[in-house]
Nucleic acid binder design. Structure first.
Lengths: 414, 414
DNA sequence: CCTTTTTGTTGTCTATGACAACTTATATCC
DNA sequence: GGATATAAGTTGTCATAGACAACAAAAAGG
């Protein structure tokens, strides 16, 4: 099953006329989405938030309850005088699978509609997996998790986070940065294997999506996001509350942001793109390490007193600042979010990064921009990936067709 | 009168609940906007376009007619068998003023709700005008035009296009590229003078908006736009059908796009940006000219057989290509629109420009991108500017309060 | 235990788009 | 030129979703 209706949040065909049913759909969607993003809320909060009448909320919540999407429980914490409000919570009997494929591992999470990660399976791969290998491994893990599910559990689908360029319209992986796949119709193949709707997107965009909905980016609607991987740098942009996509979904690949002219122009210093100018491996090399994770890398950098390490760090911070300045000039964001080893760089010397940006940015564009680091080591990428699969349900809760949890066609046929 | 509710097309607070009246508002808005963008349409076309029932269209059109916004006329051209359809047209008794302030002139147009430019007054200024001068001149021209209006004419407001950074939230001009104004509260001042709502925005963004709605950009919803001025290069981006704005409205200033690494020497202005790398003056210099308009410049470039001119043109095309490649990597647009002298460069040698882009772009991002030139010498900037003032009316036709055409408070007090 | 306060429920009302039957107006065919 | 076919506008009825108001319920506080 390949789904072509991807998570185009906020993209509505405004030329269309709206009917009464659209109102209902919109309001159901609003309530479910609000609960999804903010957790359990009292009915009173929902009335305030939506501006709808109490009776309307009552009717809408009842409908969502009938759909088996939410449940109402008596509030535990007392809230002062008056009749206590009922708290509306999202059922985690509705789930999605999130698959993240990385250079050395495949991770599959089971994520509930509440946005909680219920289970995670990480399986290492000997090398960067070929497309076929990745599909088979993902299928196997999903089927294992699937067979453990309660009978009543309903699955909305599978979201997949891939590094590199992913064509969102047809789920074809065009140029995966680390995996060396070429035009792999990943979504379709995996969909056929597991008989579930599969949605594919760029991992950086999904990470950003999760940061925007649940993480450090929550307060902002204009964000520039950069994530430093073991190899390469991914990026994404939120503009006006919506992710930048471009025609085929290739927009916002900020790792390719050019920092020096490719040819024929006077270079002064370094050359290449952000990905080639700021590399995690250079930090490892300066430290004399080969392979360590971000947590250890940060510790090592903090502990090190080597002049060489300091020089490398400073160079990278300066370069990062120049790139950020260019991006801030273009996007005028409220916040810049740095993840992965770029977050470490920022944490090591926020002042220096700030100064480097300041030296190369348009004053006005920069005036209200904050540079923030994301919370390291969180589940947010998996949550963002599951959002891909939840999107349709959240957009139109009334008419969504689930896949059955127990019906393990793929397992049976193995 | 300063208006803080600017043209945030497509930005809806989706967390809000919708009621029945919103449906009506949406549908009225849809019909009026469709007519505004596409001109007179038959009622049958409206039904197809909106998907609404004939009877509903009837009711909606009747309401718009009662509001004095549209009129129905019998179709002139016969359309085959069957009862002829009534054509719905927009009244041009609803108007806006569009003001464009340039380095050597101030232009004010009277634009009808149909999107037609009804009158234009261009007044040269001895030098780049100071903010006060510009306000006084704009006020005077507006008042002249205003006193000529029919009694029944209703004015929605004034849109102003300014070069450089404009803070859309409060109408303060932060860093006007050519005018050397500093933090001028332009919108407020002009609003006080003429007692009309005033909306200010960056001229490049408004040019792009018009290209998107009425010009070469109509078929696309992801556009990168660059306009070459006499001095400097402006830019804008349409992403997912909406203009890029950023936090304060400074996003999309692509003229500052960096093409070579910043030298640590503090030069006056930025070195190595698109604006400084591709300059109209260099073309003039090579031609041995001093001041000519774009039309003559194009002729002269086409006629010239000088090797020096060719070299300059080729260099500029190559550099433009590099910049475009960088922007295409970031935005993955459907189309790149080039206006002003950049359009001339493209027309001179589309192949070369294409090759230059191709050499530096990510293959996948570029695969479906077209490079187009805008129609030179059109009224589109003024139309785009008027859109600023029309936006509110188009968004909620039912509850819009007009300013009276005849009530010339400002004129009387002179 | 009664009052106060807040919240949920129920029944009625209104507005809006859908639908279907009817009317109108033109083109075409004989 | 009149009958017929075709397309489009009009009108009245219907269904539905949210607003509103009155009422009931469930605590907290005296």
């Amino acid at each position: 099953m390949l789904e072509s209706d991807f998570s185009q949040r906020g993209v509505e065909d405004t030329t269309l006329g709206r009917t009464r049913e659209h109102v209902r759909q919109h309001n159901l969607s609003t309530i479910l989405t609000t609960l999804h993003k903010e957790g359990s809320l009292g009915r009173n909060v929902l009335t305030q938030r939506t501006g709808l009448n109490r009776s309307t909320i009552s009717s809408l919540v009842a409908e969502l309850e009938a759909l088996g999407l939410v449940e109402e429980v008596a509030s535990t914490a007392p809230q002062g005088a008056g009749r206590p409000t009922l708290v509306v919570s999202i059922h985690d009997s509705v789930v999605a699978f999130a698959v993240a494929i990385d250079i050395d591992s495949i991770v599959v999470s089971l994520v509930g509609l509440s946005g909680r990660v219920l289970k995670t399976v990480r399986r290492r791969t000997p090398d960067a997996p070929a497309a076929r290998t990745a599909i088979v491994m993902a299928r196997n893990i999903i089927n294992e998790l699937r067979s453990d599910l309660d009978a009543g559990t309903r699955i909305v689908g599978v979201g997949v986070a891939l590094p590199g360029q992913v064509s969102v319209s047809d789920g074809v992986v065009s140029e995966p940065a680390f995996l060396n796949w070429k035009q792999a119709p990943f979504a379709q193949r995996l969909g056929e294997e597991i008989n579930l709707p599969v949605f594919v997107d760029n991992d950086a965009r999904l990470g950003l999506l999760a940061e925007h909905d649940f993480g450090a980016g929550k307060p902002f609607s204009n964000i520039v996001y950069l994530v430093g991987h073991a190899v390469g740098i991914g990026g994404g942009v939120i503009e006006g509350g919506r992710p930048l996509r471009g025609t085929r979904g290739f927009a916002g690949e900020l790792g390719h942001f050019r920092m020096s002219p490719p040819v024929n122009m006077p270079t002064a210093g370094f050359s290449g793109t952000l990905s080639t100018s700021v590399q995690r491996d250079d930090l490892l090399e300066a430290l004399g390490e080969t392979t360590i994770d971000d947590k250890k890398l940060e510790k090592a950098l903090l502990a090190s007193s080597s002049a060489r390490v300091r020089r490398v760090v400073e160079t990278q911070i300066d370069r990062l600042g120049i790139a950020l300045a260019g991006l801030i000039n273009i996007f005028n964001p409220e916040a810049v979010l740095l993840a992965g080893f770029l977050g470490i760089l920022q944490a090591l010397d926020p002042e220096r990064l700030s100064e480097s940006v300041k030296a190369h940015v348009l004053e006005q564009s920069w005036a209200q921009t904050q540079i923030l680091r994301t919370q390291p080591g969180s589940d947010l990428l998996m949550i963002g990936t599951s959002e891909l699969a939840f999107a349709q349900l959240l957009r139109d809760p009334g008419s969504f067709a689930f896949s059955r949890g127990a019906n393990l066609k793929a397992v049976e046929s193995e």
